[in-house]
């Protein structure tokens, strides 16, 4: 198959490209440079919203588009983030339908449901996307997911897949949960021990590959691990922890974020405060791929002894 990957220059994008090129032809679109990609991967350094991108999709004869180019950096001013994520995605969707590409895979996030105190314990794929209620900055991620959902319903002839993974953790991943486990002393919220789920980067890659297969369509929650209390994870890491009362923790993070002393936005504290358990039954039944990484394998690169070496 010929596959177009957006956001190919990111850490995950590169790994997706490396994996897919074994069986497929891969063409990447990213406005960032992408040095060191294998020779058989063509990379176009263009912005998806600009004219040249349309020609790439028009002439590319693609069988599938894997959309990884959604930006999660909340330091970017909100208008810019909106344009890049929402307008970028809408533009891509237009090309997919215009040039009759048969498959679209969006890497969304389990975060779009939002960790809410009122959530039912298990969150199914049809649960409302509430994330921006308590954390307005994530609204573009929710808007992207919704845009692709409505695309799914409008274009029944196109196989649209939305992947909503739990917290992605891996040795090469630089997102909030991975960085949290990298801390030398791990702060936690006093009196809270939420049930969480992780997904190994490797498992996510496998799921992305599985979702390209013809016949797969719909929304899928993804996770590697059974629901596990955060305290068990911290214990397995073997690092010292520091319980901090929530108001103090939040106040500190808000100030630290303002002065650019931290990469953790304060509202993301809800992830270590409230349960957020994805119901992954659909992925198990329909994607025909099972996660292979155990919790302890996922945590190995973050454990105290490993880091000290």
């Amino acid at each position: 198959m010929r596959i177009c990957v957006t956001g190919i220059s990111g850490r995950l994008g590169r790994r997706v490209a490396q994996l897919l090129r074994r069986k497929h032809e891969v063409v990447g679109i990213d406005q960032r440079a992408s040095p060191g990609l294998p020779a058989n991967i063509v990379h176009h350094q263009v912005d998806i919203r600009r004219r040249p991108a349309e020609d790439i999709l028009r002439n590319g004869k693609f069988d599938a588009v894997v959309h990884l180019g959604v930006v999660h950096n909340f330091r970017i001013p909100s208008e810019k983030l909106y344009a890049r994520n929402v307008i970028g995605t809408e533009t891509l969707l237009r090309y997919v339908s215009k040039y009759k590409i048969k498959k679209l895979v969006l890497l969304s996030s389990g975060d779009v449901y939002g960790p809410m105190p009122t959530n039912s314990h298990f969150i199914g794929e049809d649960a409302p996307l509430m994330a921006s209620q308590r954390f307005p900055e994530v609204r573009t991620l929710v808007a992207v997911d919704r845009a692709v959902q409505s695309f799914f319903w409008r274009h029944v002839d196109i196989e649209t897949v939305i992947l909503r993974p739990a917290h992605i953790v891996g040795p090469h991943v630089r997102n909030a949960p991975s960085n949290y486990f990298r801390l030398r002393i791990i702060p936690k919220i006093m009196g809270f021990d939420p049930i969480v789920q992780l997904i190994a980067e490797d498992d996510l890659l496998r799921y992305i590959e599985a979702s390209i297969e013809p016949g797969v369509r719909g929304v899928f929650n993804l996770a590697s691990t059974d629901p596990v209390p955060l305290s068990r994870i911290l214990k397995a890491l073997g690092k010292p922890t520091l319980p901090v009362p929530y108001p103090l923790f939040r106040g500190f993070l808000e100030r630290a974020w303002k002065y650019r002393l931290t990469s953790f936005p304060a509202p993301e504290l809800d992830h270590i405060r409230f349960n957020a358990v994805l119901d992954t039954a659909r992925a198990r039944d329909e994607l025909k791929t099972l996660p292979e990484r155990s919790l302890y394998e996922i945590l190995e690169p973050f454990r105290a002894e490993t880091v000290d070496d």
Binding site: T118, S120, H121, F122, I189, M190, G191, F192, P245, N275
Partner: peptide
Amino acid sequence: TPFVSTFMARVGQFLGTPEN
């Protein structure tokens, strides 16, 4: 509610939604 939330979950109580 800190502490109470953890205690209630560990002793098997659940948030009263119909799905749960």
